[in-house]
């Protein structure tokens, strides 16, 4: 009975370590996050966003490793702050939508009946909405717009997929004998949901959250690229990429937009590769080890 290593987490972990691509992604991502969060503590944000008219659009040099933008601001510094903001906010949205989706999915799936019906109709409705356009409209008309309203607006749309997934799993799970046994013993519903069903869903939840994290970073930076993402006081990686809307910058000043684009791409690829490995781990037939 000492084999505790078969907990869902150890299975997930073993799969990531077995998969070389996922393991190197994990290492690379950790390295990037370590540098980004470490450096952003040391870096002075005031100093970075200060306009320096003497060094507008200077190419990479010893002083500015990645050159400067139209305001003479250091790109590398903005890259680090932007990556920190994009990742943190992507993570916040993922966790918030995870929490909402999980709660609603569990309730709909476990209780079924009218509650399930109502919840599913609402989810069906939200899924057919033109998501991107509505987010942009909300961002444009919300008064006192800031990072928290942005997170809330995004979360208001993005919880639905998770709720649907969790509901489907719970529907299958609640038919199993251990749930009926618990019910017969008189265990309260909330206890069955939290203590017994939830642990059985943990690997699916982790996989889903990981893949969503990558997606959310992409959506956030995309919206920031269009000018409807993070407010100006919180630069994002997408803000740096958006300088490329100026054809001159896109064509001749690659150091302004290319590093941020590559960084978004690398982060999303790493998270996705980790997520794919986790997904295989959650499905016993596809495991490598």
């Amino acid at each position: 009975m000492k084999k505790t290593e078969y907990s869902p987490f150890s299975v997930l972990w073993r799969e990531v370590v077995k998969d070389k691509l996922a393991l190197s992604s994990l290492l690379l991502l950790s390295l990037i996050l370590f540098i980004v969060y470490g450096a952003s503590i040391v870096l002075d944000q005031e100093e970075i966003v200060k306009v320096d008219l003497l060094s507008i659009y200077s190419p990479p040099s010893a002083e500015h490793w990645l050159g400067t933008d139209y305001g003479g601001r250091d790109i590398l510094g903005q890259l680090i702050i932007g990556a920190r903001n994009s990742f943190t906010i992507g993570l916040a949205i993922t966790l918030l939508t995870g929490l909402i989706g999980l709660t609603i999915g569990l309730i709909a799936g476990y209780f079924g009946g009218v509650i399930d019906n109502i919840i599913m109709r609402i989810i069906d409705f939200i899924l057919i909405l033109p998501f991107l356009m509505l987010v942009i409209v909300f961002v444009a008309i919300v008064p006192k717009y800031n990072v928290f309203t942005f997170i809330l607006i995004m979360s208001a749309f993005l919880w639905t997929g998770k709720a649907r997934l969790i509901r489907a799993k719970v529907l299958a799970e609640r038919e199993l004998d251990y749930v009926s046994a618990s019910k017969t013993l008189g265990t309260p519903d909330w206890k069955i949901i939290v203590r017994e069903i939830l642990p059985n869903l943990s690997s699916i939840i982790i996989v889903n959250l990981t893949l969503n994290l990558a997606g959310n970073i992409g959506i956030e930076s995309g919206l920031s690229y269009l000018g409807f993402g993070l407010p100006e006081s919180t630069p994002s990686l997408g803000t740096l990429v958006s300088y490329a809307t100026n054809p001159d910058v896109l064509q001749n000043k690659w150091w302004v937009w290319l590093p941020a684009s590559v960084l978004i791409l690398v982060m999303m690829l790493c998270i996705n590769f980790i997520g794919q490995a986790l997904k295989r781990a959650a499905d016993a037939r596809q495991r490598l080890g």
Binding site: A214, G222, Q251, M268, L269, N272
Partner: peptide, 22 residues
């Protein structure tokens, strides 16, 4: 298909425009 799944449209389009357009 893995890589294309992870690539955000706006970055891919920008890089395409940069490479093949400019």
């Amino acid at each position: 298909s893995y890589v294309s799944f992870a690539t955000p449209l706006f970055i891919f389009a920008l890089i395409m425009l940069f490479l093949f357009g400019f």
